[in-house]
Design a protein around this nucleic acid. Structure first.
Lengths: 232, 232
DNA sequence: ATTAGATAAGTGGTATGACCATCTGAACAC
DNA sequence: GTGTTCAGATGGTCATACCACTTATCTAAT
């Protein structure tokens, strides 16, 4: 005999569930306006506070958008809430730098392989553009970090897996936040920017040539070297 | 000259940010109790409503846990919020099941390789235990889903990358939420449970023997088959 | 007829106070 | 030591009042 704990459901929870059901059932779509807080409180025979609290939670989930004076709208499920959840996921202090770098390597090596198989000409152009920008940055004494980011982002997009793009982007953000100093040191080591550029070009040429194994290897070696430099 | 829109920050937003900063700065840790709503409202010289709304949003983000009569606590960053955001993403965006399965494959294939190189005897025991449980479940007409989960979780842990463990767990949770029916069908196809068990054993033997490439290949083939069955 | 400005109405944001529901810890009895 | 009771703490709900912002409508000027 298994007795489960009984827990009465909060009013705001009921409201949240109702809104979710309306969306899942197709009765509410992105862009649709919800009835006003006052109207909903009247109809549901509850206080306005409970409605507000439910709306606040739905907002935090990225399901609705609340505009003061304007009303409350169903959002396109955008990259925002997933990106935020990913950011939160990576926010913990318990993970070591080694683990983060390793995860990044797992994803980027495979993204390079997929990019080699799936890229479009436009995506190749973006990667090449980023490489050119990187080259110019180095020539002018700049560190080229934005161009580096652009290259990796374009490559992620060339994988044609939007989840992978978002996850890799979140990881890039986290690294930017956590490894800022270590990366600056890396870029400032004489000869390193030029080597990094060469490695990026190797990855690019493999992707361009549709050689997925070669792209994987090139990316692995690139990131392995970065990892070793950061972790020493 | 670029003028940006000015938008005053809502009080509840300020509160959310402050709590987040306390956590990010290490002043609040999982398990810690926040001051009461009334106390916080007094200290911040704001109304209790704003505090409540901020707390409701933080709750929806999975950052805090609110217990009526008990107080408000910082949560362990669990896999729940990411799994929920992923589930929402899957329900509303097209082609994302394919992407999630692909991401899962990328991670699990590499986890298998790392597990082959890094496992401890205890972790091997757990994997073996799960396989035995799977075998018993199939023999008694059960679907063996819990044992399947246990196997994959033990393998993730054997990778010795806690970030990878948590990410894979979130994905498993998401699949449980969204792909429930498709997986039930898969398990009910005659002959499939036995084949799945064999595939799991192949992965296990490679991990046990420290053969990382073989483990990767076995896991790839296993998940590739699962993917094709789910997506057909 | 069109445009600009003013105003009213609608909607979300904040605060306060009252009271209810649940939990926790202390005190007391056995 | 264990079980029960109760007070106090804390979260949950409601109502009301008023503020802040947006949208729609009306009026006056051109």
């Amino acid at each position: 005999m298994d007795f489960k704990p009984i827990r009465t459901k909060k009013i705001y929870e009921e409201i949240i569930d109702q809104v979710k059901e309306l969306i899942a059932g197709g009765h509410l779509s992105p862009g649709d306006k919800l009835i006003s807080e006052r109207d909903m409180a009247d109809r549901l025979k509850v206080g306005r506070s409970a409605v507000r609290e439910a709306f606040r939670a739905l907002e935090a989930m990225g399901i609705i958008e609340i505009r003061q004076g304007g009303g409350t709208f169903i959002k396109e499920v955008s990259t925002d809430s997933l990106a935020e959840a990913l950011a939160l996921f990576l926010m913990t202090e318990r993970d070591t730098t080694r683990e983060l770098l390793e995860l990044r390597k797992i994803l980027e090596v495979e993204a390079a392989g997929l990019a080699a198989l799936r890229h479009s000409p436009e995506e190749l152009d973006k990667m090449e553009e980023a490489l050119k920008q990187m080259e110019e940055d180095f020539a002018s004494g700049d560190l080229g970090q934005q161009a580096d980011y652009n290259f990796h982002y374009a490559l992620a997009e060339a994988s044609h897996n939007s989840l992978l793009v978002r996850l890799m982007d979140s990881i890039a953000d986290t690294m930017q936040r956590v490894l800022k100093t270590a990366r600056l040191e890396l870029y400032r080591t004489p000869g390193t920017p030029q080597r990094l550029l060469r490695e990026h070009y190797t990855v690019f040429e493999a992707v361009k040539g549709g050689q997925d194994q070669k792209a994987r290897r090139a990316m692995f070696e690139h990131l392995d070297r970065v990892e070793k430099a950061i972790l020493k």
